[in-house]
Design a protein around this nucleic acid. Sequence first.
DNA 1: GGTCGGATCATCT
DNA 2: GATGATCCGACCG
Length: 198
Amino acid sequence: MTPLDATVLARDAEEVARALLGALIVSTIGGDRAIGRIVETEAYLGLRDPASHAAERIGRTARNEVMYGRPGLAYVYRSYGIHWCLNVVTNAVDDPGAVLLRAIEPVAGIDVMRQRRWPDAQPGADRLIGSGPGRLAQALGVTGAQNGHSLDVPPLVLATGEAVSRRRVVRGPRIGISRAVDWPLRFHIRDHPHVSRR
DNA sequence: GGTCGGATCATCT
DNA sequence: GATGATCCGACCG
């Protein structure tokens, strides 16, 4: 496993969101190994992006503090009071960009992911195991405990994967936001079954 | 296939 | 007191 080079992440969130397609996220949280291939991302550009948690009007707060930190940190926040969402901090110190990881395809540890996703029920379709930011975090065991974690060391590592050709990348508006709704900052692999919406 | 509402809480007004 | 980078199950056709 080769951790992603920090220079890959020290660029604008828009470039990083595209570059992370095909990369691997390796979780050993809780002692069980689970690996996902990233198939869907969204860029949040920071100060100039009204939809970002670090939009200029918000200012620097306790929640978005990690986004102002070093590229390669994990920014984890709670969504709708229920879910956790995992971001990769991009850009540079004091320039707060981030990439939301929206969907993974299971590569290893699929039984661990199933157990985390459906602990008290019949397992659902594998297509739904990590297809959405809340599901992705749940499948990998990511919680607020990983906020600020450096993604080049266990228990959560961003690693190189197989490259995704330009032709296979679809780009469009982000999902679930109410500001800058038309900015085309969502990226996913074309026709991929584990993408959250098609 | 689709649409709708509830869960649940950190954050901000 | 309102909102939200979501998910799921219920209901309708």
